[in-house]
Computed example of a mutant assay.
Amino acid sequence: MTYSNSRKTFPAASAVIALTAGLGAPAFAQTTDAQRIAELEARVAALEESGNEPLSFGLGPNTTLEFYGYFKTDFIYDFDYNLGNTTFGLVSLGVLNDDDERIVSRDGGFTGTVNQTRLGFRTTTQTALGELGTQVELDFYGADGAFSDGEAEPRLRHATATLGGFRVGKYWTTFMPLSSYPSTLDFQGVVGIPFARQEQLRYTHEFGNGFVGEVAIEDHNTGSEDPVFVAAMAYDTDPLLLRLSGITGSIDDETGDDENFYGVNVSTSAQLWQGATFDAAYTYGEGIASYLVFLGDDVDANGDLIEVESAYAGLTQEVGEKWTFRGIYGVRENKSGAVGDTERLRSVHLNAEYQLLENATLGVEYFNGEREEFGGDTYDTDRIQTSFQINF
Rank of each mutant, 00 (worst) to 15 (best):
G287T: 11
A27C: 06
S267P: 07
T255I: 09
D298Q: 03
G189D: 06
G69K: 06
R118H: 11
E321I: 00
I17P: 00
F10C: 10
E53C: 03
D226A: 10
P194N: 07
E101V: 05
Y81P: 01
A281W: 09
I288E: 05
T222R: 15
L295P: 00
A280I: 05
M233C: 07
H349T: 05
P182L: 01
R155Y: 09
F75H: 14
A281D: 11
D107A: 06
A45C: 07
F392D: 10
G189F: 02
E49C: 00
V331Y: 15
Q188K: 10
S224L: 05
A360T: 15
L305Q: 13
Y235K: 05
L40K: 08
A289C: 07
L119I: 10
L119C: 03
L356C: 04
Q116Y: 07
R155A: 02
G256S: 09
V348M: 10
G69C: 05
R167V: 05
F207C: 02
D74F: 02
E53F: 13
S6Q: 15
Y3A: 02
F79Q: 11
Q317T: 01
L272V: 08
E365T: 02
F175T: 03
L244S: 09
R7Y: 14
N265R: 15
L119E: 02
T173A: 15
Y81I: 01
A352T: 12
Y171I: 01
D139Y: 02
V308T: 13
T381N: 12
T342H: 08
N391P: 01
F261G: 00
H158R: 12
G145A: 01
T222G: 12
Q188M: 10
R122L: 07
A152T: 01
L357C: 09
N82W: 07
V228H: 06
S250T: 13
Y141M: 03
R157Y: 05
Y329Q: 05
E358V: 11
E373M: 11
P11N: 08
G246M: 08
T222N: 14
N334F: 08
